[in-house]
Computed example of a mutant assay.
Amino acid sequence: MSPLPSTVPGIVRTRVRAALRRPDRTPRTTPLTPEETERRALLLRLISLLLQYPDADLAAARPVLTASVEALPPSPAAEHLAEFTVWFAGQETDALERHYVERFDLCRRSGLHLTYYLHGDTRRRGMALLTLAQRYRAAGWDTDGGELPDHLPVVLEFAALAGPGRGEAPLRQHRRGIELIHRALTDAGSPYRHVLAALIALLPPPTGADLRAVAELAAEGPPNEDVGLDPYGTYGAGEFAPPGAFVPPDQAPPALVPPSAAHRQEDR
């Protein structure tokens, strides 16, 4: 990958270069050429960046992100990202922030915390978060602790770092949740649907069972547990609990703190 130009804002240089410096200790099982692997990792990193909260620094990096997308070799994923960056580049920062909060922090069916869609507000979610954190540490990667380990941009960065085999395993495991997020964004007419579509284009095609499970999840919501979940709060029947309201169960380690999205909402 060619060096990042000096005009790239510091936040992007830090996020991308730090990722590139981390060793890839996960053996790859997918028969990709080095060029294909590098190209795939770049796509995953771009998707991760575009799904992060569009603060002033990330908004300032839009020209470089747009140019990076335009330089991608033709592919379905690149086409979807190009569709998104046209909108992304033309919005005011305040409008971007509002749209992001509305779609990902406040909308129950398009939050970016993947274990919620698989486990809902049950004790299994705490264990799933712990398992993800352990997977990252085993690969020699430490997150900065700013988000839960199931936050989609975090999962995407790990996939880019660790490679198409074990690195992308969490994405494949949570494919149904990713499909549901894409469906919710599409129903809402959000341009972020293009970013999710780019990710889906990199994943194996959904099976019939996947599609049936997504339809059921959209209709009924994730699993729920009535006993011992007072810290999670009370929500209406059949509603999705906002991801920002999640409090890990007792067995989760102290490092798994609520997502920074909740703090953004308090600050607004």
Rank of each mutant, 00 (worst) to 15 (best):
M1C: 00
M1D: 08
P3S: 01
P3R: 00
P5W: 04
T7L: 10
T7G: 04
G10N: 03
V16K: 09
V16G: 09
R21Q: 07
R21M: 10
R21V: 01
R22M: 10
R22S: 08
D24E: 11
P27F: 07
P27H: 09
T30K: 14
E36M: 07
T37F: 04
L42F: 10
L43I: 00
R45I: 02
R45K: 03
R45A: 10
I47A: 10
S48C: 01
L51W: 02
Y53D: 07
D55W: 09
D57N: 11
A59P: 06
A61V: 04
A61I: 06
V64N: 11
L65I: 12
T66Y: 03
T66D: 15
S68R: 09
V69D: 15
E70I: 00
A71N: 04
A71G: 02
L72K: 14
P74G: 08
A78M: 10
H80A: 15
L81C: 15
L81M: 03
A82D: 14
E83H: 12
F84I: 00
T85A: 13
V86Y: 01
W87T: 14
F88V: 06
Q91G: 06
T93Y: 12
T93I: 08
Y100S: 04
Y100E: 01
V101E: 05
V101Q: 07
L106H: 12
R109E: 04
G111V: 03
H113A: 09
Y116S: 05
Y117T: 01
Y117F: 06
G120F: 07
D121L: 03
T122P: 02
R123V: 12
R124P: 00
G126P: 03
G126L: 12
A128M: 03
L132F: 01
A139Y: 15
A139R: 10
T143W: 13
G146L: 09
G146N: 13
P149C: 03
V154F: 14
L156C: 02
A159P: 00
L161S: 09
L161C: 13
A162C: 13
A162N: 12
P164C: 11
L171Y: 06
R175G: 01
R175C: 02
R176C: 01
R176K: 09
R176P: 04
G177V: 03
G177H: 10
I178Y: 11
L180A: 15
I181S: 06
R183F: 05
R183V: 08
R183S: 06
A184P: 00
A184D: 00
A184T: 01
L185A: 13
A188V: 02
P191K: 08
V195T: 12
L196T: 07
L196M: 15
A197T: 03
A197Y: 07
L202W: 12
P206H: 06
P206N: 14
G208K: 15
L211T: 10
R212L: 11
A213M: 03
E216Y: 05
L217M: 10
A218P: 02
G221F: 05
P223W: 07
D226G: 14
V227Y: 09
V227A: 08
G228A: 08
P231S: 07
Y232S: 11
T234W: 04
Y235N: 05
Y235D: 12
G236D: 01
P243H: 15
D250K: 11
Q251I: 15
A255H: 15
A255C: 04
L256N: 02
L256K: 02
V257W: 13
S260I: 04
A262L: 14
H263W: 08
R268Y: 05
